[in-house]
Amino acid sequence: MARIGMTVSDTVLISVVIPTYNYAHLLPRALDSVLSQMADDIELIVVDDGSNDNTADVLAGYVEQHPELNVIWQANAGAAAARNRGIRNASGRYALMLDADDELLPDALAALREVVAAQPQVGMVLGAQISVFPDGRERLRQPAPVPSASPLELARLYLLQKRISISHCCSLFRRDLLLKRPYPEVLRNGEDIPVFTYLLVSAPVVVTEVPLARIYKHADSLRHRRDNEEEYAIGMVREVFAGLPAECQSLRRRYTAQRYLSLFRAAQNAGDHAQARRFYRHALCVSPLQVLRWGYLRKGLRLLVGG
Rank of each mutant, 00 (worst) to 15 (best):
L160C: 02
H218F: 15
R214Q: 11
D107S: 06
A233I: 02
Y216M: 05
V291A: 01
L35Q: 09
H168I: 13
Q129N: 05
L44W: 02
A30I: 01
L222A: 13
R226G: 14
C285F: 12
V186P: 01
P19A: 06
L152P: 08
D10P: 14
S202K: 05
Q275C: 11
R302D: 00
D272P: 01
P288Q: 11
R174S: 13
G92W: 02
V122E: 05
L212M: 10
I45Q: 03
L69M: 12
P143S: 03
N189P: 10
R163L: 15
F196W: 04
V116D: 01
L31F: 09
N70Y: 07
H224W: 12
P120N: 11
I130G: 07
V34L: 03
W294L: 06
S36F: 12
E138Q: 13
V34P: 01
P182Q: 05
N52L: 14
D57V: 12
A276V: 06
G190A: 14
L301H: 07
F279H: 05
D40Y: 15
S15Q: 09
G306L: 09
V195Q: 05
S165N: 09
L140F: 03
C285M: 14
P211V: 08
G123W: 08
I18E: 01
E191M: 13
A39W: 13
I14P: 00
H224D: 15
S36C: 12
A111P: 04
L304W: 01
P147Y: 06
R29C: 10
M38F: 14
L96F: 06
R252I: 07
L44Q: 00
H66T: 11
R93T: 05
